[in-house]
Design a protein around this nucleic acid. Structure first.
Lengths: 208, 208
DNA sequence: TGTACATCAGTGAACGCGCGTTCACTGATGTAC
DNA sequence: TGTACATCAGTGAACGCGCGTTCACTGATGTAC
């Protein structure tokens, strides 16, 4: 049952998308090839028509997740409308802590990525660089020569906060970690803080 | 070959210590019971005389790692001498990124902890609360009602930074992430920044 | 205090299971003539 | 354009391996008398 080239490409894409979700949900090591294929509506045997190994899929899936995130940030920043504020709000929400559809791999499989092969780390690192660029290109930072440095710091704080909020065994503590981090980041950036009480978008709405 | 109670307790402690190191080095899921027992100079069969399951060891080992970190922070803060500065410096060093002996589990197995069982998350969360307390009790924050909030923010930024630095495929990027995070945290706290150029301890020395 | 017995830390082999990967096979697609 | 053949996406079973866990056994320790 050979498939057309378009169908093959579609299947490959589907596997990557499903894998990206499953990896975030259950972890890189705990998610099996058979699980992913089943979730994509296929059987495990066909996997190796698309990928040389599970590791290659890990690299592609994590890279794709990162790229999706970068595109989302870039797109909404270009559209203006306090896009960056929305992203900080959304990133530091309880919803993102549980969101496996568009969650950030740096949070959901962060410590596993540090042990991943070179290909995976390269793909993810490129995504990270893209995020830094996207954030530092935000209009409110245009004049600042420290835009990159600030973007790096903001990302560290956000990713650490969500990582910790996901570990915490107490919902109140999780919320506190997210809230305090958001407040501090807001305080860091007066032009964001100014807007804060005007037109903050509810988290659920900010979720694309 | 039954052992005396003291010896049994010693063996149990040894297993926990070795496990804490191996878990940080290779991850919770990728480290096997047999690996740990071998590293402790034992065979796998004896494991279940000390623990009901691997999961219980995970909880104990991660809890112990956290407690060790808390004790270390508390102790050096009590001793004065810009202890907190030293800890920030040390935490955000390239050395800590590779340090498996006294590295922070929230960094080294962070994303795996979020998926761990309740017992493990409880043990680690208690450690985290201890860290927050220890940092916010630092003398330089004594008068500040926002000490806890600041401690939470600082921890998020530090843990995120080291997580990211460990993932990055480029040493320069890793160093930049650590440096920018350190600079921003220093800038946040003038009394730390004041001291900064006076008596900063070299990282290698700050490593206990 | 000495002796006989129960306990139990540790060994090393085995069990069952799930994983990543391979493989013979199927049959629709794409291609060469 | 039509036909015969090669290709290859997908199937489902099997392979080998490593894992967490169990178990019969050993022999030093602790305990009851």
């Amino acid at each position: 049952m050979k498939k057309s080239k378009e169908e093959t490409a579609k299947t490959r894409k589907k596997i990557i998308q499903v894998a990206a979700r499953e990896f975030r949900r259950r972890g890189l090591h705990e998610t099996g090839v058979a699980d992913i294929m089943a979730a994509a509506g296929l059987t495990q045997g066909g996997f190796y028509r698309h990928f040389n190994s599970k590791e290659h899929l890990v690299a592609e899936a994590c890279g794709a997740s990162m790229q999706e995130l970068v595109d989302s940030v870039k797109k909404s920043i270009q559209s203006g409308n306090d896009a960056f504020l929305k992203h900080v709000e959304r990133f530091l929400s309880n919803e993102h802590c549980q969101d496996l559809l568009s969650g950030c791999p740096l949070v959901f499989v962060g410590s596993e990525l540090a042990r991943a092969d070179h290909e995976t780390r390269k793909a993810v690192s490129e995504g990270y660089r893209g995020l830094v660029e996207a954030i530092s290109n935000d209009e409110r930072y245009k004049d600042s020569s420290t835009a990159r440095a600030e973007a790096i710091f903001i990302l560290s704080a956000m990713i650490g906060a969500v990582t910790l909020a996901r570990i915490a065994d107490d919902g109140k503590l999780s919320t506190m970690i997210l809230d305090e981090t958001r407040k501090h980041l807001m305080a860091l950036h007066p032009n964001i803080a100014q807007k804060k009480n005007k037109d903050v978008v509810p988290v659920a709405q900010a979720q694309k």
